[in-house]
Design a protein around this nucleic acid. Structure first.
Lengths: 250, 250
DNA sequence: AAGTTTATGCGTACGTTATACGCAGAAGTA
DNA sequence: TACTTCTGCGTATAACGTACGCATAAACTT
């Protein structure tokens, strides 16, 4: 306890409900919860780009600078908004084995991010440590409780699944946003991407991409099926399974 | 060719060198390449946050608005900067099997992103389509050429490996940035995170996280070993392998 | 009851940002 | 020589995050 006498960052104290009011001074007219909820509302209806301190304040009918009595900076607000948006993880299913559990985890998380596409656009600046993020992490680790995996391997598995899910949510959200921006359907936006690839990627210079295009893999608009996402998750789970049996047998 | 008569977006035309000069008018005093290089230089030395149109222009000794003759918006510049920063992929190793190839791909890509941490902080808005991104994609697909994977599976594999690599690069860059910001070492920053987790995550409310902490998995600072990253990639490759043999045998 | 302490709401101000607009001048073409 | 087209860029605008300080409200102290 010599040099590392650093306390808990204010945002985290707020997120974990550790803010002690001294009792003095005027009674607060706002709560962090209301501010965060207002931010989430703006983000949900108008996108993350519309979330400014002024916009959130006007949503609450207060002055912009009033928010700074509850939040040190906008980044803090964004972190709290993400925590509120992901909410609590679903309850553990009793008879579920680890593979079904992790698959369900990925699907639930993806659906959640799909419902609030702005969440994956919030720039990340720290490892996850807000209450609901920890709760989701706990949920995932719990699913792997009875496996042969080491603890750090479970953590790594959680990171992998989260990363793949977030990445897929971001990619599809980008495509959707481009589609909405151009007034076309998601399928048309996908087709537009395939067309661009054909136009720009010379098959002589990029033979493997040329093969990909020639294979027609990009032509069928099976986008809503999330095939690529499923494939990535399933292969990773295959790998986990192989790793476990290898450990048991070896 | 009825309604999809949309042309190539200007940024992409620029990135692929498809800009045709009419010959008229004053000779341009700048080139896109110089602008992009200036942006990369600023990002490399002062971080992505320091990259403003004004800052890049001053780096070149021109007025801010001059840049807009070459770039439609700042986002376009950022996209071109990313493309320039990742550069061309390494050459294919002759006798390398797909597994060794994809492993090397991941390591090379990670090293590249580590060397320019700002790259993973550029907000992504579209699927990858700039020349060097396509080149990397081609490189990855080429590695899988002789495998039993379907084309869309190869694409999915590329996406998975890229996502995991980018995610890991971002996470470690965040920790490094926090460390530098607090004037401490990366190991100390990691230890600080573990300490926060211990402080905030109640083992009764979060039993699995409690177990993780109790296991001591977070205490050993084996950060530079990139163990978690390696594990994720290795399990995915295990899964790919299992999938292939299953396909061959089935 | 009076004074002290501390917190709140917020008006004002500042520095930065991206970028729309339009003009002067350069280099071609007719 | 006239006309077209493109360049560099000065000016201006709207939006942004947030530092600062003041008036005031509530509780604690004496």
């Amino acid at each position: 306890m010599s040099e590392s006498e650093v306390g808990i960052p204010p945002v985290l104290a707020a997120a974990w409900g550790l803010r002690e009011r001294s009792g003095k001074g005027p009674r607060p007219g706002l709560t962090l919860e209301r501010i965060v909820a207002a931010g989430v509302k703006v983000a949900a209806s108008e996108g993350l780009g519309a979330v400014s301190m002024a916009r959130v304040a006007s949503e609450l009918g207060v002055a912009t600078m009033s928010l700074y009595r509850y939040v040190r900076a906008k980044d803090d607000l964004l972190d709290l908004m993400v925590d509120a948006a992901i909410g609590q993880p679903p309850p553990r299913q009793p008879g579920e084995d680890w593979r079904a559990g992790l698959t369900r985890f990925a699907h639930t998380y993806l659906a959640l991010l799909r419902g609030q596409p702005w969440v994956v656009r919030v720039p990340i600046g720290t490892p996850p440590i807000t209450p609901n993020q920890i709760a989701w992490m706990d949920h995932g680790l719990e699913i792997m409780r009875d496996t042969a995996l080491a603890h750090h391997e479970r953590l790594s598995a959680m990171m992998t699944i989260s990363a793949l899910t977030r990445n897929w949510a971001l990619l599809t959200a980008d495509i959707d946003a481009a589609a909405r921006g151009g007034g076309i359907s998601t399928e048309q936006a996908m087709a537009g991407y395939a067309r661009l690839l054909k136009l720009l990627a010379d098959p002589v210079r990029f033979p493997a991409v040329g093969d990909l295009i020639a294979s027609g893999a990009l032509d069928n608009p099976d986008e809503p099926a999330d095939d690529d996402f499923e494939f990535g998750i399933a292969r990773f789970l295959d790998g986990l399974e192989a790793h476990m049996t290898r450990r048991k047998d070896g």
